[in-house]
Structure formats: structure tokens, C-alpha cells
């Protein structure tokens, strides 16, 4: 399994590099697509089939199509010849390097446990809630055996309902804004 993970990780990293380093926008887009698929397989390996399907359906099947159309209808030969934004390259490199180091540091410092965050929050809040949290946990363990979509839906619609709804509001606002901008140009 670890071997597969290394293979996939290397593949995804290569695809990501391809996205950034390629001069031809269409090659970038195709490597991005390959990267999305790689991430989807990674999810499958983690037994998160639902997330994998959603990844493929939404990102690879939906968003990449739009990207590709956008790229296809620009004059990619001319785009390839123009050197874009080269003055930003070095600052961006250092910024990303800093971000990478910071994330690595955080990952290195954090300890991974099997306990989901809900329980830890409950433990912190007090013994009173611990019992209810534990029953919730037991329920979740039962769910884990049951089915993958159910887990996702429980997470989305019970545990994290407010963030979920907030995200949907955000997306709606973004859609409206996009329509507004597009209308203005026409």
C-alpha cells in the first residue's frame, strides 16, 4: 500500500509540476486533469470512495471541461510565445517555499490519532458531554461499517451543517457575481 502511495504521490507531484512548468496551456490543463485523477485514486486507496467519485465527477468531469474549453479557445500558440509575468516568478517561489516549510513544520509537529476531533472537543468541554460524544462515536463506528456515502452525509448534514451551508451561500454569491460580471461585458 505504501508503495502504491509513493507511486501515486510521485505521479501527482509530477502532474502538478507539469501544470506549473509547461509552456503550452493545453499541456498544463491535461496534466491538471491527470493530477485530479491521481488524487481521485488516492481517495480510493483511503477508502473514501464517495469523495473519490465526487472528485472525478466535479473536478475532472465538470471543472476541467470548462478549463479546457477556455484554453482551447485562446490562441495558444501566441500565448506560448508571450512570456507571462516573469517578474513575479522569484517572489512567488519564495512565498511558496515559505508556505511549504510552514506546512511541513505543522505536519511534523502535529500528532495523528484515531480519535476524531469531535471527541477531543468534548473531552475539553467536560466529562458531562463526554458520554454523549462517546455514543456519537460508537454510532459513527457502526456507520463506518455500513456505507461510505452515509458517513459523508452524516459529516455534512449533522456534524458540519453550518460550515456546509455557509460554503453554499458563498458559492451562490460567487455564481451571482460571475453572472453579473459576464453580463456587463456583453
Amino acid at each position: 500500500m505504501a508503495f502504491l502511495w509513493i507511486l501515486l504521490a510521485a505521479f501527482i507531484a509530477a502532474c502538478a509540476l507539469g501544470v506549473v512548468l509547461s509552456r503550452s496551456p493545453i499541456t498544463s490543463a491535461v496534466s491538471l486533469l491527470a493530477g485530479f485523477l491521481g488524487v481521485g485514486i488516492l481517495y480510493l486507496c483511503l477508502r473514501a470512495e464517495f469523495v473519490a467519485a465526487a472528485q472525478v465527477l466535479v473536478y475532472a468531469g465538470g471543472i476541467m471541461v470548462l478549463y479546457l474549453i477556455g484554453v482551447m479557445f485562446t490562441d495558444s500558440e501566441a500565448l506560448r510565445l508571450t512570456r507571462q509575468a516573469h517578474f513575479q516568478a522569484w517572489p512567488a517561489f519564495f512565498l511558496v517555499l515559505a508556505l511549504f516549510l510552514w506546512m511541513g513544520h505543522r505536519l511534523y509537529r502535529s500528532e495523528f490519532t484515531a480519535e476524531p476531533p469531535v471527541l477531543r472537543v468534548a473531552v475539553a468541554a467536560g466529562a458531562d458531554q463526554e458520554a454523549s460524544a462517546k455514543t456519537a462515536l460508537a454510532e459513527r463506528a457502526g456507520l463506518a461499517k455500513e456505507s461510505n456515502p452515509r458517513q459523508v452525509s452524516v459529516a455534512l448534514f449533522r456534524d458540519f451543517l453550518y460550515p456546509f451551508e455557509a460554503a453554499s451561500v458563498l458559492l451562490t454569491v460567487a455564481v451571482l457575481g460571475g453572472v453579473f460580471l459576464a453580463k456587463k461585458e456583453v
Binding site: 485562446t74 490562441d75 501566441a78 500565448l79 508571450t82 507571462q84
Partner: peptide, 10 residues
């Protein structure tokens, strides 16, 4: 935008 010519609708 230096890309304007490239990205223009034609």
C-alpha cells in the same frame, strides 16, 4: 494587460 491581444475575441 500584455495578454490583451492574445485573449481578444476574434
Amino acid at each position: 494587460s500584455p495578454l490583451r491581444e492574445v485573449l481578444e475575441t476574434r
